[in-house]
Design a protein around this nucleic acid. Structure first.
Lengths: 333, 333
DNA sequence: TTGTACGCGTTATCAA
DNA sequence: TTGATAACGCGTACAA
């Protein structure tokens, strides 16, 4: 590559210019051993004059610590995920870690690739929130000694911890409550390949309906606002009473808007519930009833756990965070 | 740290187990030189058996290429930014780069720190979209020979390229158009510390009003949905006719919702314009008129440029992307 | 308090 | 086609 730049200044050049050995320079950089005040100042001034910055690569190689953590997610393009990412970044900054981001686009191949890369890059730890990866995949990190916190994946091992979402319990209770007060038939939006969490909730949905001898509906739905909007505009030409359960705010909004545009009233005719609420549940009108988990807090927590895991000071390797039901205007109860 | 894991397998162990020298192993890994088919297969099988993965750190140190690019942004928590991030990640995957993320939380200190870290980590290139950093700061990368693409910062140097947003021109034209057709007094929401782009638009706003001898209003506004909503609910008790210009969708939605809750009608009484439209402009009702730039495309473009810059094949170092005006339901024109 | 010398895991140059 | 051996830039015992 173009050699029109000054080469990187090395610790050796600093040592030479300061008239000391490179060991001494290393000492002032890391203030690991005591260095005479005079020498230290001299070295420091040379460092500044030369604009020396230690090579993170060389440091990492020598110390076997990269001060870097990998984050594997499907995409940064979902609000609830970028919220989590924000939480992770916050704590990383506190603990002087650096974040490298691996996005999988819901592709298993990309996901496997991300694991490979995270291992190759000597990540000090990894946070995984991606349903393409199963337990065996994640355990692979373990055989390379890289600690992992898995979000939404129940798995524990010597260097693996996890954060799980408590949805089923509260979801079932909400359904039963609805069975008492409400009367609409419920429709669950099944999104292809939307991951474990949604499947689990879908199962809970079915099971609770069966247990209570209730009819229900499950329909396929694209993970896109526009498609869902059009589908429901069509659907609402015939079906005029329904309680729809969508997995995130944009999808819920699509149903709401379609209902409104079809002349239906909310929540009298149509009720809508979002399973992963974000701040948009409160912004969109009518506001959307939702199950809420503070994903930014999840991110922070995950990173705290990972940090402890790295330091061998994590004792509770399984952390559970409960969703809460937030009643808004899109449902009656 | 806990030694309860097998140590990392090195190229040396592979060489030993395969009965060849480490140079040969290196050759099969990178298929850089010709290796006898027989030896190659043997090495390959040993690599698989031992689960050997080359150390990215050592490779980077030896080749002086980290295959990693740094991305400096204020936060991943804004939709338009995470859109850009998504675009960057897409292209990085195509080109086998890895992304490390530096968030500055609108803090200049954090921003400077991010630069330091990106340099330390030997990033092969950096994309900066952060208004805390001025030209001098960014030029610092140059003296360390790391190529930079600056988004929304007009700066060009031997290893610095930029992407700029065309807002002023179309914005002024839209204003003038409004002056002809419309009649409401316009209010610009000034957000403290929201960066160059907003300031520039604000200046264009003022200038155009002065040129056309029109009255205008500028009011301070927090960069928060909730605060803005409350402020405007209060404001709309008195002021009942207004054309409000907000810098992003959430803020615009706050004004819209406040207007609605104050019994005002949109766009007859209150009109609202969002300067950085995202998909939420179309989801929120009434839909929000906005200036739109495809931030995901910006991200892709930035990364393509950076890639060319790294390879010394970038000739147009300044790229301009024009915002387009998207008329929706929150304004009359 | 300081310096020497080796190791970290690769690539790359030069011989063989 | 293969094998020594010197970088790459740093940390760290050990010795002085």
């Amino acid at each position: 590559m173009g050699g029109d730049f000054k080469d990187r200044v090395t610790i050796y050049e600093v040592a030479k210019a300061a008239g000391v050995s490179l060991a001494t320079v290393s000492r002032v950089i890391n203030d690991t051993d005591s260095v005479k005040e005079e020498t230290r100042n001299k070295v420091l001034s040379v460092i500044k004059k030369l604009g020396y910055k230690p090579s993170g690569l060389a440091q990492a190689l020598a110390t076997n610590k990269s001060t870097n953590i990998g984050v594997i997610i499907p995409s940064a393009n979902y609000v609830y995920i970028s919220n989590m990412l924000t939480g992770i970044c916050e704590v990383c900054k506190e603990n002087n870690f650096t974040v490298t981001l691996y996005t999988t686009s819901h592709s298993r191949l990309d996901a496997i690739n991300s694991i490979e890369k995270a291992i190759k890059s000597h990540a000090d730890g990894v946070i995984v929130f991606d349903d393409e990866l199963n337990e065996e995949d994640i355990e692979m990190f373990n055989s390379y000694a890289v600690p992992v916190v898995a979000v939404n994946n129940r798995i524990v091992a010597s260097k693996i911890a996890c954060i799980n979402f408590g949805y089923e319990h509260i979801f079932k209770r909400a359904l039963k409550d609805f069975f008492v007060k409400g009367n609409k038939k419920m429709t669950f939006l099944h999104v292809h390949n939307a991951g474990r969490l949604l499947s689990r909730i879908e199962n809970a949905f079915i099971q609770t309906h069966l247990e209570n001898d209730r009819e229900y509906d499950i329909i396929n739905c694209d993970d896109s606002y526009q498609r869902t909007y059009l589908d429901f505009k069509e659907r609402f030409k015939k079906k005029r009473k329904e309680y729809v359960i969508a997995y995130r705010d944009s999808i819920a909004a699509a149903v709401l808007n379609a209902a409104h545009d079809a002349g239906l009233s909310i929540p009298e005719d149509i009720e809508v519930l979002s399973l992963i609420g974000t701040k948009y549940s409160s912004i969109i009108r009518p506001t959307i009833s939702n199950f809420y988990i503070d994903m930014q807090e999840v991110g922070r927590r995950a990173m705290y756990m990972l940090s402890d895991l790295i330091n061998n000071t994590l004792f509770e390797k399984e952390y559970r965070i409960e969703a809460i039901y937030v009643k808004k205007d899109s449902t009656r109860f």
